[in-house]
Design a protein around this nucleic acid. Sequence first.
DNA 1: ACAAGTGGTTAACAATAACTTAATATTAAT
DNA 2: ATTAATATTAAGTTATTGTTAACCACTTGT
Lengths: 227, 227
Amino acid sequence: METEPKKILIADDESDIVEIIGFNLEKEGFTIFTAKDGNEAINKAQQIQPDLIILDVMMPYKNGIEVCTILRQHPNLNEVPIILLTAINDEQTHIKGLESGADDYVNKPISPKVLVSRVKSLLRRTNIVSINNIIEIGDFTIDSDKFLVTHQNETIVLAKKEFELFRLLASKPGRVFLRDEILNIVWGSEVIVGDRTIDVHVRKIRQKIKADCIATVKGVGYKFEVA
Amino acid sequence: METEPKKILIADDESDIVEIIGFNLEKEGFTIFTAKDGNEAINKAQQIQPDLIILDVMMPYKNGIEVCTILRQHPNLNEVPIILLTAINDEQTHIKGLESGADDYVNKPISPKVLVSRVKSLLRRTNIVSINNIIEIGDFTIDSDKFLVTHQNETIVLAKKEFELFRLLASKPGRVFLRDEILNIVWGSEVIVGDRTIDVHVRKIRQKIKADCIATVKGVGYKFEVA
DNA sequence: ACAAGTGGTTAACAATAACTTAATATTAAT
DNA sequence: ATTAATATTAAGTTATTGTTAACCACTTGT
């Protein structure tokens, strides 16, 4: 099983904090993404589907707690581990932060080492609990648990066969799937359907997804192409 | 699906701390068990199989970190959520505590309310299915103790099976539950009921709850959708 | 004990969404 | 240009779910 580096999104308007935290997490092998305000945090989270998000509470446009509340209602991000970071050492805010759906609430000033420990602890816990069936490729997110495809913040609802076909192609971008393979995997080896059936499904997917991401390889099959 | 109150084991040699924390957690509907030292904590944990353990770091016989390390090697307790409690505000200990497998590390003096929040947050994360006896999602409040659903201040009375089905779906908003899953969880794996049974229950829920919050995924199952 | 009510299940049928096919148009390869 | 493969469209078919009402088992109040 491949273990790609875990992606962590850090959102804070104070660039030196982002830098020091980012540096320490990178040292541990995490891949770091950053955002400078609440809106950017939400957009980037959707784009990159991080494994964990660190949110400063005091940020322009949307504060960390607001971002947290929004993410918890988001179809693909409502289970992502969230750590709130704050200079506010206030009981009410602390409780409100956790109630907004955050997993941890850490007061500044922070020891980077402690933060790294907390990140690891949280990831350890979330890995035990949930194995998310999410494929990300290009601007697409394919969530098998929710039977949902999202593309650039837009949610696309596919029917069962459409979804299974799309997921198959997207599972190995660039690789061509023979029509026979597709039939075997999506329809099953016993089922016999005409050749045009696949085409019609491909058409429906292409229609629902505006992007041009399924390529025909004439005489062979279809493949998913990253734009 | 029975909803027993969640069991929490508190281990601390300072009886007044145990008392104040215990009191506040009981107020929230948790059942409290206590231990006065490390060995007792391990024994009681095995006996009662708590849903969460709070360990003081400084305890006789075995300290909290040692207890945590041992529990993490124990077959039945290696996944139980653990919160370490400590008067030691020291970075090294903090990190060691988390590395021993604890999920959280909280410094004394503690606000009981904050601790309760952290307990809830951790239980929310560790329990896929509603362990908090109260689920709040969208405009809905689902209270497993009172078997009550409220929606925008209106009280909705659901029958037992209806309630369990609704709670299951609401416990993982967005996630599609396969019909088989639903049967296994709500009806139990031994019980055999016809296919239309689920539909009829869904219909009744949809009828009682005016909102359109249960979506059908044809050929797959049902899911709860936030409006 | 009895009637009335509640909850749960089933069966019959209706409605609908998903899937398949067939007919025709378009495209790509040689 | 010719041909084979795929795209497109609409219509037809099937599978799945929705709806209703009836039935039975249990509980509750009298």
